[in-house]
Amino acid sequence: MTNEVTVPLLPCASIDDIVAFYEVLGFHTTYKQRKPNPAAGLRREDLHLQFFEIAGFDPAQSYGSCLVLTSDTGQLYRAFAAGMRAAYGKVLVSGTPRMTRPRARKNADGLSGFSVIDPGGNWIRVFQNAPASPAPAPAPTGRLGKAMANAVVQSDSRGDARQAARILDSALANPAADDDPVALVEVLVYRAEVAMVLNDPATAGEMLARVDRVVLSADEATRAAAAYEAATDLAAALAAGPGDRGVPGWGRSNR
């Protein structure tokens, strides 16, 4: 048979919170019930998710997860990010819910992936749909590139932000003369993101300030465009945080 469809059924503490969050991402409710048990179905184009409510459920203890395969992770990420900016004034990068950015995954043959961690603590893992005969992904090069790849596996895949921070801190503590400045920007920005996940805005601000001091050529700045975009989102999240004044001066041109 063909055309079978699998729909994940995921736990949450409140279907109302789930529905409100996914509506921000462009989903609409296909059904919602309170009895005999609270449940909701959501759909965004061909992406279907269903949720059931558990009284007293702790999202921090959730093991709920599913995979979403798409032809363009960047396009889907941008759509989700636009919804977050419109609803919250920022892309959610810390706490629950939050969203990681699309990055090549060393543990997924180098294919791009990002994750949405929803109010139920479920990890919706979005991956690039591999072609029938994918070419081998280039291995990360340079010590900073390798550190970045290892850190992404720890934080974005395993959810171990503390181990990612240790990997990145070790790399940043031992600069080398031949370090690629673009890779340095990418590592600093990712370290800031990891700090936000760890509820450490001071370190996040320090990392973004260091980004601003890296001097790049015009070509290097073009290569670092995605990292600078991520830094802008992180700076906005810092500025919107309770009692946080953001990162004055970040984002000025260093071309």
Rank of each mutant, 00 (worst) to 15 (best):
N3S: 13
N3T: 13
T6W: 14
T6M: 15
V7M: 14
L9Y: 15
S14H: 10
D16K: 14
D16Y: 08
D17C: 09
I18Y: 14
A20C: 13
Y22W: 12
L25K: 12
G26Y: 07
H28Q: 14
H28K: 13
T29V: 15
K32S: 13
R34P: 00
P36W: 13
P38R: 06
A39S: 14
G41D: 07
R44A: 15
E45R: 14
E45L: 07
L47G: 06
H48I: 05
F52D: 06
F52K: 10
E53N: 11
F57T: 04
Q61S: 10
C66P: 07
L67E: 13
L67Y: 11
L67P: 03
L69R: 14
L69T: 08
T70I: 08
T70F: 02
D72Q: 08
T73H: 05
F80Q: 03
F80K: 01
A81W: 03
A81S: 07
A81P: 03
A82E: 13
G83Y: 02
M84W: 01
M84V: 02
R85P: 03
A86V: 02
A86P: 00
V91A: 05
T96S: 06
T96I: 14
P102G: 04
R105D: 02
G110Y: 02
F114T: 01
P119D: 09
W123L: 12
W123A: 15
I124D: 06
V126H: 04
A130N: 10
A132K: 11
P134R: 09
A135K: 11
P138Q: 09
T141R: 09
L144N: 07
A147I: 05
A149F: 11
N150S: 14
S155Y: 03
S157G: 09
R158Q: 14
R158S: 09
G159E: 05
D160S: 10
D160L: 05
A161K: 03
R162V: 06
A164F: 07
A176G: 08
D179F: 08
V182T: 09
L184T: 14
L184W: 00
V185H: 08
V189W: 02
R191L: 00
A192Y: 00
A202N: 01
T203G: 01
A204I: 01
A209D: 06
R210F: 00
D212R: 07
A218F: 05
A221V: 04
A226T: 06
E229I: 00
A230S: 10
A230W: 01
T232L: 11
L234Q: 12
A236E: 11
A237H: 07
A239L: 10
G243Q: 04
P248K: 06
P248T: 03
W250C: 12
G251C: 10
S253V: 12
N254G: 09
R255K: 04
